[in-house]
Design a protein around this nucleic acid. Structure first.
Length: 154
DNA sequence: GCCAACGTTGGC
DNA sequence: GCCAACGTTGGC
């Protein structure tokens, strides 16, 4: 089993929407970056766990735990002219963009902030992709050791 | 709102 | 294939 971190802006999508969704499950659509797509499409497996990370907010950090409940399938928002993530270059016969389904496992008891993660970036969390300088990827892998350590911080 | 970092686009 | 221009991300 693998572990992941998936970014979302809480003003757009967060725990509230996820908790209210049927079966607390939603499609993680709108990813338009090739590296992130490749990880979703080629590496994410059913049963993998993921952190829900809040970005572009007063207090960036990890807010919840999710599970991958459906492996990659074509992202229909890429074909919807009215959708903000519409991509005219993506051919429905040979889709460019993919999504997975995630289920909310639980909210964390508190947000584990980016600041707190950074406090460990040279020791326990050394090498964590999220903390790499200039990182902008919306989906990054998390090692089992890092996953365990972060949960222990909670 | 600023801006560094990085991905994408398109002219050549 | 190079690279300047441009757009986006995301912390601060």
């Amino acid at each position: 089993m693998q572990y992941w971190l998936m970014k979302s802006e809480p003003s757009t999508f967060g725990l509230k929407q996820l908790a209210a969704a049927p079966r607390r499950t939603t499609g993680w659509d709108g990813v338009r970056n090739y590296q992130a797509r490749n990880m979703m499409r080629d590496e994410m497996k059913k049963g993998d766990q993921a952190f829900l990370y809040y970005s572009s907010t007063e207090e960036p950090g990890i807010a919840g735990l999710m599970r991958i409940v459906k492996t990659a399938y074509p992202d229909p928002t890429a074909f919807d002219r009215k959708d903000h993530h519409y991509d005219p270059k993506s051919d429905p016969e040979n889709p460019t963009w993919f999504m997975v389904d995630v289920q909310l496992e639980r909210a964390l008891k508190r947000i584990i902030t980016l600041e707190e993660l950074r406090a460990h970036e040279n020791r326990e969390l050394k090498g964590m992709a999220l903390l790499r300088r200039g990182n902008r990827l919306s989906i990054t892998p998390v090692s089992a050791a890092h996953w365990k350590f972060i949960l222990a911080l909670e």
